[in-house]
Design a protein around this nucleic acid. Structure first.
Lengths: 118, 118
DNA sequence: ACTTTATTCAACTAAATGGTTGAATAATTC
DNA sequence: GAATTATTCAACCATTTAGTTGAATAAAGT
């Protein structure tokens, strides 16, 4: 289990393919084997396996052997990375741009407070 | 001004390059000419111009002639598109954060217990 | 008109990408 | 241990990409 530091090049490159985005969407429903993930796509298993490899190298999913199949699961961290990068442009479509930085900084603290209330 | 429908393939592909992300970041500060945008990058003007072309085709920026230079400006819509797609995964890291909060709360509770003991 | 400035186009190259097929490896079942 | 199932590897091919250089176009200044 090698923790790679997140690389936006790899992440965005991985997301720039409809097959790979579909695979990620599939995984939202829960972990799946390589064959399961490959099944809906009109290509060889080896082809789909390559796509999964790209996603794994980008840190977007992880594979773990489970008997004779490889169980794939979504890795939120890398996606979150992309999202954080995009958020820095949120001021463009967000009116409250003067407060955004504050909000982002205070986010965790607010969540902790909410957790205390509930 | 041809309004293209947003294409996630083009958008993510455009974002998957550090030079292009830097160009977008540059534009956060305001509109700039092609030469201005190209200047910080260690490549020919034609090379940078190509990158700008990629960003334009993805709908991430627009160009407008202003005298003899071309003024480039950020186009929020395409970025927002990518952000919306990513948001559909936000539950993943929200869940993770929730779990993290739980863990932190548990730790805090343990600390409190320890404090009681001492 | 000629020159300078800003930018793109065209042609080329090297490397990466997305796909294929057939053979190889790994774990399971008979 | 032989057969089956799950997955990857290796070699190959076509297309795209990221860069180059040199010529072409567009607008402005002299």
């Amino acid at each position: 289990m090698v923790k790679r530091e997140p690389d936006l090049d790899l992440i965005f490159k991985a997301l720039a393919d409809p097959t790979r985005r579909a695979i990620l969407a599939s995984l939202k429903a829960g972990d799946q084997s390589v064959s399961d993930l490959a099944a809906p796509h009109a290509m060889s298993l080896a082809g789909a396996s390559k796509h999964i490899g790209v996603l794994e190298r980008a840190g977007l999913l992880s594979r773990e052997r489970r008997g004779r199949e490889l169980r794939c699961s979504l890795e939120a961290e890398a996606l979150r990375c992309a999202e954080v990068w995009l958020q820095s442009y949120a001021t463009l479509w967000n009116k409250r741009l003067d407060r955004l930085d504050e909000l982002l900084m205070a986010e965790r603290a607010e969540e902790a407070e909410d957790a205390n209330k509930n």
